[in-house]
Amino acid sequence: MTDTTNDATDDRKYRSLWGDVWSQFRSHRGAMIGSFVFIFILLAVAIGPYLWTLDPNYADVRNRNQGMSWGHPFGTDQLGHDMLAQVLQGGRISIAVGLTAMMLSLVLGTFIGVLAGYFKRLDGLLMRGTDLFLALPILPLLLVIIMLFRDTLRNMFGPETGIFILIVFIIGITSWMQTARIVRGDVLALKEREFILAANSIGTPSKRVISRHIMPNILSPIMVSATLGIATAIITESSLSFLGLGFPSDFPTWGRLLFDGTQRIAQAPSRVIWPGLAISLTVLSVNFIGDGLRDALDPRIRGR
């Protein structure tokens, strides 16, 4: 029925929702720059290691602690590893961990937050569960998880993938609570608003109310959580490996490169600048993309 009315309208004026979103997104300068930088970083870490073919784990001991040069544009570390190769290789793991762990915690947090905020009966139980997770001491929990699952996962997926799954799971499972609390707070307020009451009163099923009316209105805190979440995940990964709970030491990650470099901050500033820049650029670009997306998805702003 509605389809026919749509067909009847002028074809040139017809624009899909996503088309609208896209054109609004494109007009957001920060978001476009952010996208280009982010895609550049993704390409660099995905293709970079094939172009810059030095092995990141080859220790050229004679050339250790070198500054920047043509042979080693980013210099070398205390064992003579090429820093450019290490940053490229490390980016693969850091971005993969950052994105997947952020997604996991976001999905989990939003899901629990919406359920708790919307359904009064679930609220008490879910929020007390959230309190429990907030209260759990993370480090001993990690030790337990690692003890129970490291060897199993290593045998199933090999040392690299096994530990990747474990770390993403750990970061995700220990960082969803803030998102859940924030989302719940917003949903509590939203659900008393007139348009939700209206939707309820005409008998819209809860599932549809949530997906059509609640979700679009809680996007901004979720976007902020997402950008902050990536940074947290990348940094958390580095503290995990610092505690001996992360990737084996021959898998460089941005967080660990930055941590190792910090000790030599006065002697070799380039050791901290490159990984630090990589992390900051990633987080900044994701933040601007998030800003643009939020604007693009908000019908009130889109109309302006």
């Binding site: 920060g30 950008t227 902050l228 940074a231 990348i234 940094i235 580095s238 967080g255 930055l258 941590f259 910090t262 000790q263 901050i265 901290v272 630090g276 992390i279 900051s280 990633t282 987080v283 900044l284 933040n287 601007f288 800003d291």
Partner: peptide, 20 residues
Amino acid sequence: QAGTFVAMVGFSVPTFFTGV
């Protein structure tokens, strides 16, 4: 823009680095 920049750098650069 400046606020965004400072906030994001402040959040993405870990305290073990800023402290040192």
